[in-house]
């Protein structure tokens, strides 16, 4: 028998609420907000409260999927990224850089967000950059 409570940060928005994941014999069975965290003081929203449900859900995507002939097939990262890059390139050539937009994330670092806008402006050539809450 192994029971652990693992302190972690909510993966959803940028607030950074702290909670414990309850892990019994390797299975995540519950979420409980951290009372001593100055960020959320023992409170969570409905998304945070249910984080444990998706972590080990069988429907969770664990590898890239490529849609072919109306259905998905599993693929490696290299193949998937090559496909995305070639399609973006094609769209840019055919319709211009402003036909592409990028959404950054509240859950990644400042530096990663910097890279996203740099990629949009310097590589693709568009100012269409926004944050994930606009989705």
């Amino acid at each position: 028998m192994e029971f652990k409570t693992v302190l972690t940060v909510c993966p959803y928005c940028g607030c950074g609420c702290n909670f414990y994941l309850e892990v019994l014999d390797g299975k995540v069975i519950g979420t409980i907000p951290c009372k001593t965290s100055p960020v959320n003081e023992g409170k969570l929203c409905i998304k945070g409260w249910n984080v444990h449900e998706f972590i080990q859900d069988p429907d969770r995507l664990t590898m890239p999927l490529i849609r072919e002939n109306g259905s998905f097939r599993e693929a490696g990262w290299d193949e998937a990224l090559d496909l995305v890059a070639s399609k973006l390139k094609k769209i840019k050539e055919q319709h211009g850089p402003d036909s592409i937009g990028l959404f950054a994330s509240a859950k990644i670092t400042n530096e990663e967000n910097y890279v996203i806008q740099k990629f949009a402006r310097a590589v693709i050539g568009t100012n269409n950059v926004d944050h994930c809450a606009r989705l």
């Binding site: 028998m1 029971f3 409570t5 302190l7 309850e22 001593t36 965290s37």
Partner: peptide, 20 residues
Amino acid sequence: IKGFVGLCNKNGHTAPYLFT
């Protein structure tokens, strides 16, 4: 007892914990 369900000082926080 197999374990004790209590509270533990971990990472500067108070955490629910199973002491074995």
